[in-house]
Design a protein around this nucleic acid. Structure first.
Lengths: 262, 262
DNA sequence: GACTGTTCTCGTACACCGTACAAGGATCCT
DNA sequence: AGGATCCTTGTACGGTGTACGAGAACAGTC
């Protein structure tokens, strides 16, 4: 029997999902199994971050040797890809269907996506690095696709509109999880960390030079509650901008169609 | 004299830029110097990617030992941060000033940013991972800030609008550079790679199930020239969406102000 | 119950990584 | 010429992902 490690060492293989092969069942003495490996990985990634996860540590956590993992998985990357898709599975697709018009569905999808990125800070870098073509990622992508389709935008515009929204969410979620990671590393709450950062910024002798208009914004933000509240507000507003932009484009298309009819 | 390595080993230090210290001049026998280190790093990063850059390889390229680099730099991360800021310096800020209204300035900034991310594929992951507070990054940020200010949006909305645009650009540039990296790794042109990817997708037995509306989009895109042309088109359109969205918000604020006056 | 083949686990080893540390060569100032 | 300072190097440590082969645990057959 071929070992997992012998499969698919083809350097052109770019994703586990392109190498369809049944998961190894865990009948062995160590009670290992792919699901257990993946869920433990996710827990460790959430707790310690991407950089801290090593095969040896993961194996130790599972009460096993590093090399044992390679029976269930070809490479460490595979584990990451499985973990990612599992996280995509957290998205509540039923909530999307329950939402009303396309505007609302886009909002729900964006919130779900953002929540996922923030809950699992290690996802941002990996989303940008791996093909996201696991079953859950694809199911999520389909829902996005459906929502955008229902805008009524012409076919050639749909991918653009879609990326405008979801690339934004990706970037926003990345920054947000970044910030919370840094706060955690500094051992502060996000609010404390924000205060510190602003103070450091204001104390910088360069600040006056480039402060034009900055000061006012910083002051304004200080009066609006916690950091997370401001983030929620900003995110919702940016979504409004995007939805409004799409609505404008839809209206323009409709207008152009009317003109053509005349 | 303290060695570079002894400075700032404080784990709370989160960026080179927070550790203001003059650069070491390169009067030594190896003719080394921080600029040479950074520019060589950028070249190697462009050619080989982030994962392939190691201190030993970089040193070899410079005709020197790995440990020599540590005279000019505290850690490998510092080199990355210097390289990043140097790349931020490529942005043509004069072109931004030459542009007309805020709409046009936002477009120019977005194009510059996107170009930077695509030219240097290793930037996307690092932008998401480091504080971007080098001089060039800050100068770039200021220009963005100024453009957004000139929309006339109220202070508390400006950061949202800004992030809607530039988080989108970040996400878009990330995907794009991702794609071109994968094509290069597979030894294909981007067009060839696209054809292969679509074929693999269509051949997938799952395809029919989830194909609703996909087929048409894929076909449509095949008729619109090269992959890069489609990307340019999509990017421009998404920017239109964003600009239109901001215009709507500006108009709504103006309207609300008029109503309040009455 | 013994035998055999498959399914798992492990110990060892390799090449590579970032970098701490201390020794020493090169250069400049006095 | 001597000493201080600047720069480069060799060696070593503890980490990484994972290739390879030995062997333990189990299932099925006689």
């Amino acid at each position: 029997m071929v070992k997992a490690a012998d499969r698919a060492k083809d350097p052109a293989r770019s994703s586990v999902w392109l190498e369809k092969r049944a998961a190894r069942s865990g009948g062995g003495p160590a009670g290992l199994d792919r699901d257990r490996i993946v869920s433990t990985s996710i827990r460790m990634l959430d707790e310690e971050g991407l950089a801290k996860l090593s095969m040896r540590k993961l194996a130790t956590e599972l009460g096993v040797t590093a090399m044992s993992l390679y029976w269930y998985v070809d490479t460490k990357d595979d584990i990451i890809e499985f973990a990612m898709d599992s996280v995509y599975g957290e998205v509540d697709l039923a909530a999307v269907d329950a939402a009303g018009d396309w505007q609302e569905r886009i909002r729900v999808l964006a919130l779900e996506y953002r929540g996922m990125l923030v809950r699992h800070g290690w996802m941002s870098p990996t989303v940008g690095q791996y093909l996201n073509i696991g079953p859950n990622a694809i199911a999520f992508g389909r829902k996005i696709h459906e929502a955008i389709r229902d805008t009524g935008l012409s076919l050639d515009r749909q991918p653009s509109a879609m990326s405008a929204v979801f690339q934004f969410v990706y970037g926003y979620g990345t920054i947000e999880s970044q910030f919370s990671r840094r706060a955690a590393e500094a051992g502060m709450s996000q609010d404390e960390f924000y205060v510190e950062a602003v103070k450091a910024f204001r104390d910088d002798p360069e600040f006056e030079k480039q402060a034009e208009g900055m000061k006012e914004i910083l002051d304004e933000r200080a009066t609006h509650g916690s950091v997370t509240a401001v983030w929620d507000r900003d995110f919702a507003y940016a979504l409004d901008v995007l939805v409004a932009g799409i609505e404008v484009m839809v209206a323009r298309e409709a207008e152009a169609a009317r003109d053509a009819e005349k």
